[in-house]
Design a protein around this nucleic acid. Structure first.
Length: 299
DNA sequence: ACGCCTTTGAAGTGA
DNA sequence: TCACTTCAAAGGCGT
């Protein structure tokens, strides 16, 4: 069911007819035709992509908000225990980074022991003290299990010990810094949603993936540079942090299930990677993917 | 309530 | 060194 939906969305975007049945060879499908669709009445996303190559690159992306200056009027120090627990240091003193972060104390939402020192207004997550951006946590720090922790206190019948144990488990998690594509997605998602009236992230991400590839090297370089700074900043804020810290925190239904899903035809890129096909490949039988050469630049 | 989907890239893991 | 795995974001959907 889901795959049909995705195929459907993707076909609307790429003008590929969905592979119906298992034996049908997609190369026999009708040629690419552009035009409005039910999900994209204006055809904006399709047309935008189709004409992308002949269009000048979209407007220069704004610098990541992370790197915009935001001055905190009331900087304070992080209590020693918090600093130690989070691997947090005093405000960065390098000329490049000072001012991006400043320290302030305060409790935030379900994180009563978390000191919020990240102050950038556009990277707000969760609720802080209204009107005071200084009470907003660094976006990389979230409760360990996201959605659930944002819910009100669980009033179910639990012993104090159980509640305490649960609290212990739900220590905030320091998230990975965003890579170049993630930064690009974050910035462009709203535009794509507006253009295509799509809401499903999976479909939107497919569009964004293709648009990412359609970007010029210079355009992409900006995001790579931002991502590099993000990592640099992240390293300075959390010196002891490792991506390994978050390994296994996402519960997967089963390894077998996951492998099955990843072996599913997800994209031409994955397909080519899995089967060792090169960019010139126009058809990948195992994955049911057609990669017409005239579309390759967009993939 | 929470995992899956989907994308790319960075980083971890194991051979 | 290489291939493979996990996780970053997002929100609808399915279990």
């Amino acid at each position: 069911m889901y795959k049909e939906t995705v195929y459907s969305a993707f076909n609307l975007l790429m003008h590929y007819p969905a592979p119906s049945g298992t034996g049908q060879h997609p190369q026999s499908q009708p040629p690419l035709v552009s035009g409005p669709s039910s999900q994209c009445p204006s055809g904006a996303c399709c047309l935008a992509d189709q004409h992308k190559a002949s269009q000048p690159p979209h407007s220069v992306p704004q610098l990541s908000p992370l790197y915009e200056h935001f001055s905190n009027p009331h900087p304070t120090q992080v209590p020693a225990d918090i600093s130690q627990r989070q691997g947090v240091h005093r405000p960065l003193q390098t000329p490049e980074l000072s001012g991006f972060y400043s320290l302030t104390s305060g409790s935030v939402g379900q994180l009563p022991h978390t000191v919020s020192w990240f102050t950038h207004p556009s990277l707000v997550l969760g609720s802080g003290v209204p009107g005071h951006p200084a009470a907003i946590p660094h976006p990389a720090i979230v409760p360990s299990s996201g959605k659930q922790d944002l819910q009100p206190y669980d009033r179910s019948l639990k012993t104090q010990a159980e509640a305490k144990a649960e609290k212990e488990v739900k220590k905030p998690t320091i998230k990975k810094p965003l890579n170049a594509f993630m930064l690009y997605m974050k910035e462009m998602r709203a535009k794509v949603i507006a253009e295509c009236t799509l809401k499903e992230s999976a479909a939107i991400n497919q569009i964004l993936g293709r648009r990412w590839h359609a970007l010029s090297r210079e355009e992409q370089a900006k995001y790579y540079e931002l991502a590099r700074k993000e990592r640099q900043l992240h390293m300075q804020l959390y010196p002891g942090w490792s991506a390994r810290d978050n390994y296994g925190k996402k519960k997967r239904r089963s390894r077998e299930k996951h492998q099955e899903s990843t072996s599913d035809p997800g994209s031409p890129k994955k397909c080519r990677a899995r089967f060792g096909l090169n960019q010139q490949t126009d058809w990948c039988g195992p994955c049911r993917w057609v990669v017409p050469t005239n579309v390759l630049p967009l993939l």
